[in-house]
Nucleic acid binder design. Structure first.
Length: 310
DNA sequence: AAGATATTCAACCGCAATCAA
DNA sequence: TTTGATTGCGGTTGAATATCT
């Protein structure tokens, strides 16, 4: 039985603990984390101390500040390039930690998964409204496929997301039964790249939104090629019927209000970070481009042909 | 107003790399 | 060279909060 003095404290940090940690860093610098406990300053592990410092106490952190559109774009591009190398990606985002990036990506993936998932027909009490009840369910009833061979970059991308999507989940999300490369994140990345390329060419809005200097990114790898099926899917972005793939749900509700067409760069409203902590009060700020489709763009869509005809 | 559901985010864990003795 | 300690990273969890019905 160890005395209370030797017990390791876990859980949320108190202000007093933060203070002790900050004092330690001021004295000795951000190192020797284990000595904090060995000196009896805190009952936290060195690991915990380091994490606290890196994620919350370090100066110049954008704590509580939602990712700007520029940051979102960067994360998406960098993730496509580096995979889930959050620490590396975070180095491109001043004031953001690997944990921030990781959390951003994780919640984003969950949201996408939810959006792309067809509501189970067995849940009529689902919170989704149904404008066209009984319409073609797009994303279910597909057989679970083995993950096929990908290009190198795609393999990495896919394997690195194993915790987010298992194979069958991935297939479901992509919803392309005979798609050779059922890689949603990669596909999404391509969609984004299309958008941003589009924006760069057509709109001055994006420029005006780049209000702070981000490092120049290495060129995205051309290995992110899509299968013909994927390319067709991407090409359908300009097709007003494209989002019929979401089936009969009232997607617009899920996608949020104030949305605009993705090809118009104005869908990214750069959120000010000056008053961090108010982020919830800016519903116009998108988390992803999916949030920025117009709420009524799904109102006049016709069902796509059955996926088997794609 | 209340319960259900979704989202966010802080913090933990395990593992690997690095360092120092 | 080995070994134990430390550090860093990515994945995961769960509580708090927000949103929806």
């Amino acid at each position: 039985m160890e005395g209370e003095r030797d017990e390791i404290k876990k859980g949320p940090w108190k202000a007093e603990e933060d203070e002790v940690l900050i004092n330690h860093v001021n004295k000795y610098g951000p190192r020797d984390w284990s000595s904090i406990r060995s000196k009896g300053l805190l009952q936290r592990t060195g690991k915990s101390c380091r994490l606290r410092w890196v994620n919350k106490l370090r100066p110049n952190l954008k704590n509580g500040c939602k990712f700007s559109s520029e940051e979102e774009r960067l994360v998406i591009e960098l993730q496509a390039q580096f995979g889930n190398k959050w620490a590396r990606i975070a180095t491109y985002l001043p004031g953001r930690t690997d944990n921030d990036v990781k959390n951003f990506w994780s919640s984003r993936q969950k949201r996408l998964a939810r959006i792309l998932q067809t509501p189970p027909s067995s849940s009529p009490s689902s919170s989704q409204s149904h404008k066209n009840p009984g319409e073609v369910p797009f994303l279910h009833d597909f057989p679970t496929l083995e993950v096929p061979t990908f290009s190198a970059s795609m393999e990495e991308d896919l394997s690195s997301k194993s915790s987010y999507f298992d194979n069958s989940e991935m297939i479901k999300l992509v919803g392309l039964p005979d798609m050779v490369e059922p890689n949603l994140p990669a596909l999404e990345t391509n969609l984004f790249q299309l958008q941003f390329n589009h924006a760069d060419q057509k709109s001055p809005c994006m420029e005006s939104q780049s209000q702070f200097p981000f490092p120049h990114l290495p060129q995205p790898q051309p290995a992110l090629t899509l299968s013909p099926e994927s390319q067709e899917l991407v090409a359908r972005l300009d097709d007003p019927n494209f989002f019929d793939v979401f089936g009969d749900r009232d997607v617009s509700q899920e996608l949020g209000n104030g949305a605009q067409l993705p090809v118009e760069p104005t869908f990214f409203e750069l959120e000010s970070c000056k008053s961090c902590g108010k982020r919830k009060e800016n519903p116009m700020t998108p988390d992803s481009f999916f949030d920025d489709f117009p709420t009524d763009m799904f109102d006049h869509m016709e069902p796509l042909p059955s996926p088997s005809e794609w």
